[in-house]
Design a protein around this nucleic acid. Structure first.
Lengths: 168, 168
DNA sequence: TATTGTTATACTCTATAACTATA
DNA sequence: TATAGTTATAGAGTATAACAATA
């Protein structure tokens, strides 16, 4: 960031490129603008990007956050149940839990009822981290989204996305 | 699919699990239902899945379709311009173009003006494929989405996603 | 025999550095 | 020197098969 004193003479400043201006004319998007999948993908990338920025102090990805949240609301569940609910395949869930467990955010315990399965539980640190994470998401991340769209549109958007996710 | 004759006696049929029913009670989603990024991701996966199904006869992915569409609307552009517009990194664009070119859907030609750059052009086969693809998308894919949401909601959804993709 | 967690593996996407040929 | 296309490579994310322990 360049800082200049108020007394400096005016610079012959050209139009400042706001965000990495290309040297060529913008392309025609054609039917792409009306293609829901395209906008959906682009919007999702932006939202995840912002989520990661807001969550940087806690170093949690969207997927990791969703696991902690689900554990908090569903104590006593095993790996298969949590993974299935989040659309994560069991083999891929193993390394993810290894990472969270090594950070002391959750524990795996053999179930006394069925010694094949692991009961997943948030640790105290995991609970505290989740609390801080939810606060960051609400105040930094979602607040900005609601401001951008307006509260009514935000709710409508959530509703439509839920319909697509469930019924399409 | 099991076929039984009309004259067969009634089977003691249990409740048929509609879509891969889990053996355990559904989990509490907690704040996840209100998290835009989560619904966005889930909806995007569903929409891409359906896109691939509808496009199966033409064997085009969403990304490949977007390239063909952009070439059709922006003749004479080079790889960097197309890739940048679609958010594809130039190194990753190479293999993608190799695949489309080997299927004779587009051509790379050295530009006479600047012999470093390749002008990308749809072949006749590429144009015909794009036409068929657009028809499939409109009649099979988007038609179902519009039916699910209603035309007004569909337009509103597109608008909100565009706002997020651009301004968030 | 079936299921839970796990390992191994592979394939796609994405991201960065560096080369070449041109400018 | 800078840019366009390319190569090589590494890291996520995602997918399937198969094994050990347990039911």
């Amino acid at each position: 960031m360049t800082v200049s004193k108020m007394s400096d003479i005016d610079q012959p400043k050209r139009v400042p490129p706001m965000e990495a201006a290309p040297e060529y004319a913008a392309l025609q998007m054609g039917e792409l603008s009306e293609l829901l999948g395209y906008s959906l993908k682009r919007a999702q990338l932006k939202v995840f990007e912002d989520f990661l920025r807001c969550m940087a102090p806690l170093q949690l990805t969207p997927a990791q956050f969703s696991v902690l949240l689900l554990l908090d609301h569903n104590p006593g569940r095993n790996q298969t149940e949590i993974a299935n609910t989040l659309g994560i395949l069991r083999p891929n869930f193993v390394a993810m839990l290894d990472a969270l467990e090594s950070r002391d955010l959750l524990t795996r315990m053999r179930s006394p009822n069925d010694r094949r399965s692991h009961v997943l539980t948030l640790t105290d640190k995991g609970g505290a981290t989740l609390t801080r994470a939810k606060k960051l998401v609400a105040t930094k991340h979602e607040a900005r989204l609601i401001e951008l769209l307006g509260p009514a549109n935000h709710v409508a958007l959530l509703g439509m996305l839920a319909i697509i996710a469930q019924d399409f």
